[in-house]
Nucleic acid binder design. Structure first.
Length: 519
RNA sequence: GGCGGAGUAGCUCAGUCGGUUAGAGCAGAGGAAUCAUAAUCCUUGUGUCGGGAGUUCGAAUCUCUCCUCCGCUACCA
């Protein structure tokens, strides 16, 4: 097995001080589709997700609920694992930052940074808002008439000095810029890359790397009064997931990661701090970091006060898993913000899945069942129309690879569904139902071509809609071991003469529950 | 304020190293067909390509300017 056949992909790890929400689900679905895509394309994939369980907020939530913080982490982490199962995520591992293996990885990283001379002790001082637990620049604060200094959120601030370890981030400015320059694909999409380059060019300050104000975290080696700053802790999970610090671990060759999929809000931590840490530790850098956008409910940001928070479990319950996966991956250009609504989801489900793809499969397969004894018909001498549509389908894989190399799930699905539309046009133009009497052999050829197109489309859809695609491939009698992308194109043609199971609909239309009551 | 991005059909967007009559999907209207999940297929758009000016034989595509919206501008993540 060669290095370039491995593919290591990660989601950001979620902060489990509450329940999983749609944003967590979105990232996991998209990353899962990318992981599955690479597997289908023959790569040996390692895909991890997890939870980031330390920090003051977890401590506060636990205190508020009157439970131990570890108990809170255990309880909520389970919810994220359940979400992964509900979404049919194919992650190979789930890293929890409270696990011993992760502590070991973080200690090792810390010591590497220290050995590189990039860690030093100093004091961190600033105007601190106790209520917000945040430091502010003096310029962000003001002394009001009551003689008290206030922060930007109108809470009182006080001067606080805290002993802290620092990381010489400032020393990495040039090397980071050089890396961005030499590896333009390091950060995607391009607008995020521009922002990061501009940020780094504006100058980097050293980074406070430890806290002494709370103790729910990973202890700094040889100075247990300090716990590590959240990002050292959180980012290192990507190393934990491949067995670090044991570089003899079977998973270690997966490093460096091929792709970190993250939300745009944490771009800087991944594109500036993370590579700097890795450079300092003498480890290779991930190949690419891609920031996706946020999802909005009918164009409005989700918030508890507006009452439009959508639970991913409820969404799956209402529409079904694969339709939900399809909707997010197809509707939202990955990397941009997106909007979802009941109408939009139903529109996609019914138009694309039920009417176009589902119906294409059903209309062709039921004709085979009724007119060909359920046996894949012979493919006679192809005519112009056959050749045209088959060559279009056979050309799909490079388009998919190109789209997915840029994390453009929407573009990949657009390519696939353009073929679905072509196939419906082909079917309507050939009128196999009319050929039934006039030219049964030709009818067989048309049905063969259509089924072959459905086969390839189903194979291509596997990363996005695993269960539904499997159901389609079952209906076509495609063996489990004949579903990889190496079977796309001419080489994998459906075998004439093979017996098919009775066709059944794979993508039901979404019908409003209300209309049932009304009628 | 600084840097950057965006403004194209009712909706979501594609198209921009300048070049034939500016495109797709969805929604709407009309028609055909009946294999199929009442699904499908065909036909149908007078769009100031944000406003204005400029460069050019020619601009949605380049330049300038104005308007509007958005992102980034470090230690909550």
């Amino acid at each position: 097995m060669t290095d370039d056949n491995r593919f290591y992909i990660t989601t950001a790890i979620s902060y489990p001080n509450g329940n999983p929400h749609i944003g967590h689900a979105y990232e996991l679905i998209a990353t899962d589709a990318m992981a599955r895509f690479q597997r289908c394309d023959g790569k040996t994939v390692h895909f991890i997700t997890g939870t980031d369980e330390h920090g003051q907020k977890m401590l506060q939530t636990a205190r508020r609920e009157g439970i131990e913080v570890q108990a809170l982490a255990d309880r909520n982490s389970v919810k994220f694992k359940e979400m992964a199962e509900t979404l049919n995520a194919s992650n190979d591992d789930f890293v929890r930052t409270s696990e011993a293996r992760h502590h070991a990885a973080c200690r090792e990283i810390w010591q590497r940074l220290e050995a590189a001379g990039d860690i030093y002790k100093d004091s961190y001082a600033g105007w601190y808002s106790v209520r917000e637990e945040a430091y502010y620049q003096e310029s962000e604060t003001e002394v009001r008439g009551d003689g008290v200094r206030y922060g930007p959120q109108n809470t009182p601030v006080e001067w606080v000095e805290e002993e802290s370890y620092f990381f010489r981030l400032s020393a990495y400015q040039d090397r980071l810029l050089e890396h961005y320059e030499e590896h333009p694909e390091f950060i995607g999409p391009p607008e995020r890359r521009n922002e990061i380059v501009s940020f780094v060019k504006s100058g980097l300050r050293d980074l406070s790397m430890s806290r002494t104000t709370f103790d729910w975290g990973i202890k700094v080696p040889n100075d247990e009064r300090h716990v590590m700053y959240v990002w050292v802790d959180a980012l290192t999970n990507y190393l934990t997931g491949v067995g670090y610090p044991d570089e003899g671990d079977a998973r270690w060759p997966f490093w460096p990661a091929d792709l970190h999929v993250i939300g745009k809000d944490i771009t800087r931590f991944h594109c500036v701090y993370w590579p700097a840490f890795l450079m300092s530790a003498g480890l290779p850098l991930p190949k690419r970091i891609f920031s996706h956008g946020f999802l909005f409910n009918r164009g409005e940001k989700m918030s508890k006060s507006v009452g439009n928070v959508v639970d991913p479990f409820a969404l799956v319950e209402t529409y079904g898993l694969d339709p939900v996966r399809y909707f997010f991956l197809r509707e939202v250009p990955f990397g941009q913000d997106g909007s979802y609504s009941h109408d939009a989801i139903v529109g996609r489900i019914n138009a694309d899945l039920a009417n176009d793809l589902g119906n294409l499969a059903q209309r062709s397969l039921s004709m085979i069942a009724k007119n060909c004894g359920g046996i894949v018909p012979a493919f006679g001498e192809p005519d112009e129309a056959d050749r045209a549509i088959l060559s279009a389908v056979d050309a799909l894989l490079p388009q998919l690879r190109e789209a997915m190399a840029a994390q453009a799930t929407h573009a990949a699905l657009a390519s696939i569904f353009a073929l679905v539309a072509d196939a419906n046009r082909y079917f309507a133009a050939q009128e196999p139902w009319a050929l039934k009497k006039s030219d049964p052999e030709r009818m067989g050829s048309v049905l063969y071509v259509t089924a072959e197109i459905v086969r390839q489309i189903a194979i291509a859809c596997q990363p996005f809609m695993p269960s539904s695609s499997a159901a389609l491939l079952d209906l076509l009698g495609v063996a489990e071991d004949a579903r990889g992308f190496d079977r796309l194109g001419e080489g994998g043609r459906l075998a004439s003469g093979s017996e098919l199971p009775a066709p059944k609909p794979v993508f039901p239309r979404y019908v409003e529950p209300e209309s049932i009551k009304d009628s």
